[in-house]
């Protein structure tokens, strides 16, 4: 096995609230290999974006990283000094934020927002920087002469592309995308995803892709991790998760999406609502909404185990496993 580009081990993040600490990320471990697209899925408040924040060390109080380590090519991000992290961000890991179209500065041209990043992190001449800004826009499918455009002159999809151009300006090996296409139309969404997968091939990017849209994830990612209530509950290659989901939550999540083909079947979704993370139990957090497992055995602490080759599930005694699974 090759050395992973990023290796997250037993990460814990808490939000300190007046009612007690909320465990937004609880003992999450996963690794992303070079050139891999790793998807993180789950409903709002399950801790997906908090993990992204932890990798970039952009979490601020009341969020506190209370344990674990994040190794980027072997270096621990969590123990870096603030100077080191400054130098590390963008050059090694860049991020495309949720609602990225609105993360551009409205009173500065697209070109100067790109050159800004270049000047901050490299010693590039002014002329070269603008040249490079034009190149970057072309890579993401925007005409070169739009460097002088202001964000409001671009459509939502183009702004999203511009943000991706800024993110890849310093050729970071890892790109984090937090719901990059949620606010866009399906047609534009497909177009941008095709662009991203081309970029991935050309630049050899690894991508951490965060979204709640399961069908999009399965189509776009190599491997998927499913999160629920701050914990990683299942992790497997995309097609495996889609075809043989094991955790009851993953099954519920997949049955929340209506298919476009075939006969109409009644879907149920997942009854109930997501758990509160304050003083969350250490037993299976999905238990109150679960209709699958044997309730008598739900009170063991779930353990992340490789039940099928490369298919990891947080299981406990009461969870039914498919045939051929390692018990």
């Amino acid at each position: 096995m090759t050395k992973p580009i990023i290796d997250i081990r037993n990460l814990h993040v808490q939000y300190l609230t007046p009612n007690g600490p909320a465990e937004a990320v609880n003992d999450v471990s996963f690794a992303i290999q070079p050139g891999e697209v790793f998807g993180l899925a789950g409903e709002s408040g399950c801790g997906k974006s908090t993990i992204a924040g932890a990798i970039l060390r952009t979490l601020r109080a009341p969020a506190v990283i209370t344990g674990g380590e994040i190794l980027f090519e072997g270096r621990d991000i969590l123990s870096m000094s603030s100077d080191q992290i400054e130098e590390f961000r963008w050059k090694h890991v860049a991020m495309v934020f949720q609602g990225a179209m609105n993360s551009l500065n409205p009173v500065i041209t697209i070109g100067s927002q790109i050159t800004d990043a270049l000047h901050r992190h490299t010693t590039i001449s002014k002329q070269d920087a603008w040249q490079r800004a034009g190149d970057l826009l072309e890579t993401v499918g925007i005409e070169r002469d739009r460097v002088t455009a202001y964000p409001h002159e671009l459509s939502g999809g183009m702004r999203q592309r511009a943000v991706i151009a800024i993110a890849i300006a310093l050729k970071p090996p890892l790109l984090i995308m937090d719901e990059p296409t949620t606010a866009l139309d399906v047609v534009v969404q497909r177009d941008i995803l095709q662009q991203i997968s081309q970029l991935k091939e050309v630049l050899g990017l690894s991508i951490l892709f965060i979204t709640h849209d399961m069908s999009l994830l399965v189509e776009f990612c190599d491997r998927i991790g499913i999160m629920y209530g701050g914990q990683l509950v299942e992790m497997a290659p995309a097609q495996m998760i889609f075809k043989t989901p094991i955790h009851p939550y993953t099954q519920g999540l997949l049955s929340s999406f209506a298919p476009l083909k075939g006969p109409k079947v009644k879907l149920t979704g997942i009854p109930g609502s997501p758990p509160s993370l304050i003083n969350a139990p250490h037993t299976c957090r999905f238990e109150p909404r679960c209709t699958v497992c044997n309730k008598a055995q739900c009170h063991d602490k779930p353990q992340m185990r490789e039940v099928l080759p490369d298919h990891w599930v947080a299981t406990h005694g009461g969870m039914p496993l498919p045939e051929g699974a390692k018990v």
């Binding site: 409903e43 709002s44 849209d213 519920g252 999540l253 929340s256 149920t268 979704g269 997942i270």
Partner: peptide
């Protein structure tokens, strides 16, 4: 709404 609740 959250994906798991849409179906309801």
């Amino acid at each position: 709404l959250d994906v798991s609740i849409r179906m309801e």
